[in-house]
């Protein structure tokens, strides 16, 4: 197994863990955590392909990861603000109990 394949396997496993957590846990914050893990798995892929790819001097992978980290920060801020707003409305952050569309 080449180093690139090792990285890709780690990233695939991380993605699967994140996905499993995001869809199977009841708590809203953990769903968000799962999404963060999936995003990080994608970042690892970018870095791996940049490192072992054909044109490392173009720095494309690193650039995408830097932008992606910034986007993830924005996403976490908005997502957690939404969870706090939902908690304030329904007095729960359990995703199954949040059913009404009307506030």
């Amino acid at each position: 197994m080449s180093p690139l394949q090792g990285c890709l396997l780690v990233s695939a496993l991380l993605f699967a863990i994140g996905f499993a957590g995001a869809v199977s846990r009841r708590h809203a914050i953990l769903a968000l955590v799962g999404i963060e893990l999936m995003l990080n798995a994608a970042n690892l892929n970018f870095i791996a392909f940049w490192r072992y790819g054909a044109h490392p001097e173009a720095l494309t992978g690193v650039m995408v990861v830097i932008f992606s980290i910034a986007i993830a920060a924005a996403e976490a801020a908005v997502g957690l603000a939404l969870i706090i707003a939902i908690y304030r409305q329904y007095k729960t952050s359990n995703l199954d109990e949040v059913k009404d569309l009307k506030g």
């Binding site: 080449s2 180093p3 690139l4 394949q5 392909f49 940049w50 490192r51 072992y52 790819g53 054909a54 490392p56 001097e57 720095l59 690193v62």
Partner: peptide, 11 residues
């Protein structure tokens, strides 16, 4: 997949 054993790139 691209061939491995590329030198460490400058970043």
């Amino acid at each position: 997949l691209p061939k491995p054993a590329a030198p460490a790139p400058e970043a």
